[in-house]
Design a protein around this nucleic acid. Sequence first.
DNA 1: GTCTATAGACTGATAGAC
DNA 2: GTCTATCAGTCTATAGAC
Lengths: 223, 223
Amino acid sequence: MASDQTRGAILNAAERLYADRGFGDVTLRDIVATANVNLAAVNYHFGSKDELIAELFVTRSLATNRERLNELKAAEQAGGGRAGIDAIFRALVGPTLRGCLGPSSESSTAARFMIRASIESVPPIRRIKNREVDHLRKFAAAMRRSLPGRAEADLYWGLHFALAMAHHTIRERERLTKLSEGKCDLDDVEGIIDRVVAVSVTALTGEKVQGRPSGKLAAREAH
Amino acid sequence: MASDQTRGAILNAAERLYADRGFGDVTLRDIVATANVNLAAVNYHFGSKDELIAELFVTRSLATNRERLNELKAAEQAGGGRAGIDAIFRALVGPTLRGCLGPSSESSTAARFMIRASIESVPPIRRIKNREVDHLRKFAAAMRRSLPGRAEADLYWGLHFALAMAHHTIRERERLTKLSEGKCDLDDVEGIIDRVVAVSVTALTGEKVQGRPSGKLAAREAH
DNA sequence: GTCTATAGACTGATAGAC
DNA sequence: GTCTATCAGTCTATAGAC
């Protein structure tokens, strides 16, 4: 079982180094030195540097997608097969934002790795993201059930803009902090989620929504 | 003056190759072969590969920033020192979206280069983008003049979300087309600008706005 | 099956002749 | 200003030891 040990050591070392220093500055030689294994072990276990990066990213992004779908499923069941549009947006952007902006984002290497992946977007990661369409289709379907009257294009634009706000907030976290001179609190994750969800809902329904008083934007778009 | 000729040949070849094949797949040797100059000429004229990329990006992005500020200035003068919030957002996202999604985006290498720069985001380009804060401050100031009652944090979030939608639309153009199965028309640049501006304004003021008089959004969403 | 040692092809950068 | 030659460093691939 030395196999799993070596494999795991490479994965751990790679994730930590990429999280700390970015994809551009970390060589295979840095990784094998940290993991205390031989250079060729990377090729033996993963085939290539790109496939190592791909495996790291797939592992983490599958976990996020699972969380998203669990939240979506729960919201649809609570609504008897039809979730509120706010709950759908919350299931879409919540897990990502919590994972990348949450208090764990300082300590957890997994979180810092995903932030890097968001910002630097290296080829093997782009290839994986391009296959994410099937996952997003499930949210498009839920939106169609939630707002059956809307033109489909409007729903897709709404989905697209919600993701835009979430990802751009992760990517440009530092810049927004500097631009606003700290007036935008990037540590208040739940507040940010509220904000993104509220804007997404308002954009789609034309109604101004407040953040959750205590927990939900419940059924405000019912009319 | 053979100097300027060589320099220009390198810049042209590099921009075209990067636009066509991306930053990851183009080597300095590819560039000098296309430009018909010697390998060492790149280092002589630009210092390094990264500085060559930086010069390409700075040139193009200064042009966009100039367009943005011209539109902003015109809008403020037309409003007697206070531009409408919709005109401010339009000046912010219009030039970028027109440059990267417009009909020229197929033909113009400059446009295709900027799309690449948006998607791949290599280190030298990220460094330049980080210095963009001063430019954005001018839009924040205009927003403050336009909506003096608003909390500053709300204004910054509005600015941030507007940029998020514009850039994410450029970055994920292909994915949105695939996801929506063509129902989102990515060739209708002015329609997209209307949409981004409308969502940005609605998010900030809670009021549904009309697109430009001739805009398709206005017609569809009037009620 | 697991890992090591080593070689190969390619990269960006540079010294020094012209 | 330009070019040749060469550098050190990178990823990849493979033969062969354990």
